[in-house]
Design a protein around this nucleic acid. Structure first.
Lengths: 137, 137
DNA sequence: CTTGACCTTCCAGCTGCTGGAAAGACTAGA
DNA sequence: TCTAGTCTTTCCAGCAGCTGGAAGGTCAAG
């Protein structure tokens, strides 16, 4: 299987597939006589695994770790769960950050008339050093 | 005012302050005889503005646009509101993505026993090409 | 035999900084 | 006045995670 076939099967761009081998995330594939990369089904499965893990937001190094566990028949599910749980906590943290960002910005957008006059609470708030923070109410 | 004083006043690392001038986001400051950058209060206010806008997640080019409006006395608040609203929509989109990611991963983490045996729904799901997608229920 | 779709390598660039090296400028104290 | 220490400067490199493009080799169809 040449790279474009394999990459389509894995749902990744060929460039990315090459890149993953370059950085050693997946093993370097065998080569044909003329130097073409040659993939088998097992390689494609690993690429799919990585794609899915990346879609979940796991970093490349987390993917490395997960792929190690994927290939290890003696792995403990606790190891996997630990990594996934850490990721889940990051997601939660990001969600909370986004929420407060959203609330503050929505508040400003709401307060802005959006007409052709220059007065604008959004601009005002951005220019304010500690903007958005209430001081001793 | 030398760069460290200005950067502290703006709440940014000195490196970042230099960087913002390098890319032309803020105007290049005046220089002393010996070549030291020399900042005034107006520059610091612009740096604060940029810091706050970045904290809101506006990109550098959005910051450029917003800073242009900040300095433009004849701006219309509609222009500002348009940029902020677009950002708000991005935030909303990101929130929805994170939510579905969270739900799916939480479900998997929940289903994983986390013991010393190898069976693991998390790994199984990552290896599954269309994993997490229900086909015609 | 030619065309066009593939494949290869390598280098550069994206975003938004951040770290570090080498060298000059300034200030306080002995 | 010398010196130590803390500025400051420039420039180069690197983080993540790809992605685009150039220059060239390979292969199958017509």
């Amino acid at each position: 299987m040449n790279i474009s076939t394999a990459s389509k099967a894995a749902g990744l761009p060929a460039k990315t597939v090459r890149y993953y081998a370059d950085i050693g995330l997946v093993p370097a594939p065998a080569r044909s006589e003329s130097g073409y990369r040659s993939y088998d089904d097992a390689s494609v499965r690993k690429l799919v695994f990585v794609r899915r893990a990346r879609e979940f937001g796991f970093s490349i190094s987390e993917c490395r770790e997960l792929l190690g566990l994927y290939e290890d028949r003696r792995r403990s599910s606790a190891d996997v769960k630990r990594i996934a749980t850490a990721r889940l906590e990051e997601i939660g943290k990001k969600q909370r950050e986004l929420q407060s960002l959203h609330d503050e910005l929505a508040h400003l957008v709401d307060a802005c008339r959006g007409d052709d006059r220059p007065d604008c609470p959004i601009i005002d708030s951005l220019g304010d050093p500690g903007g958005g923070v209430r001081k001793s109410p």
